[in-house]
Nucleic acid binder design. Structure first.
Lengths: 148, 148
DNA sequence: CCAAACTGTAACTAAATCGGTGGCAGTATC
DNA sequence: GATACTGCCACCGATTTAGTTACAGTTTGG
């Protein structure tokens, strides 16, 4: 595997919030859809709130809503909000300074990995929550029509 | 962090082998440069051998050599040889089938993540071991000249 | 005013994975 | 036959993950 599934949780939750519009959702409702539990959802949504993507209201009747229009939130926004480190792990230790290759590989690899990660991030930045909401609605409609 | 640092080890080792040309290297020599240990190196190089990137000879005087020209080995080759799962983790469980969003998110996310990973892999595929060897040699030469 | 329904947060568990280590059988060379 | 390698297994400690329990704080509704 690779990174945590927090990105998946974040994007899933954002899509639910985008679909529900002004109506806010509770962490329990989102956890149900994820077949997970509310605490995990609140942890992830907490990071999204820190990044300015959602906001929450406490107390009875409280819940979560998007802080921006769905078309103004990309998958990259969600990804960076919840994922800490780099995707491609670097050397566990600095290599030996006594070896010519060891002396330079760290820098060279850093440049290569950064470029590769950037390519991935740019691709994530091209899809918005609005895009995913649209696709979900399309699929729902298709299912409904096929049942007629 | 993200994935394991096996990719870094693999690329480091391949670059050393590329630089040393026909001269084979032992896992201990490579481990020295990595400030790591021979067993880890053999594990990683074993995967590279399974992928047809290097070959090894047993017994005294044995060691490791490239199985292809350095310019015919990309960082993507090294990456896929040693890294198992996807970079971006999917849902830990399948989401709820009772929720409209849950029903479709897995497919949609799979498509998005696959595209994003592919963008990263394409970028890794554009750099070869020959490229890294060249850069290491260039840097070595620069250091040597600045000392004159 | 008080019970109910939320968020927010800390502490904890079980499982997985990681880098690393030691041991040892097999193999080729000197 | 000693030496120097690969190949492979079993194990360790540290870290991270998803998930759970517990509980304090906050808001609303009856």
């Amino acid at each position: 595997m690779g990174l945590s599934s927090r990105s998946a949780v974040a994007i899933h939750a954002l899509t639910m919030l985008g679909r529900s519009g002004v109506h806010s959702l509770t962490s329990a409702e989102i956890a149900d859809s994820l077949a997970s539990n509310p605490v995990l959802v609140r942890r992830v949504l907490g990071s999204l709130r820190d990044a300015g993507l959602v906001w929450s209201t406490e107390g009875r009747g409280g819940g979560w809503s998007l802080a921006r229009a769905p078309r103004e939130i990309t998958l990259y926004d969600a990804y960076t909000a919840v994922e800490a480190g780099p995707v491609l792990a670097r050397h566990a230790h600095p290599p030996s300074d006594a070896c010519p290759v060891g002396r330079h590989m760290q820098d060279l690899l850093e440049a290569e990995f950064r470029d590769a990660e950037q390519a991935m991030e740019e691709r994530l930045g091209r899809t918005t929550i609005a895009h995913l909401v649209r696709q979900v609605l399309d699929r729902e409609r298709e299912v409904a029509e096929s049942k007629r």
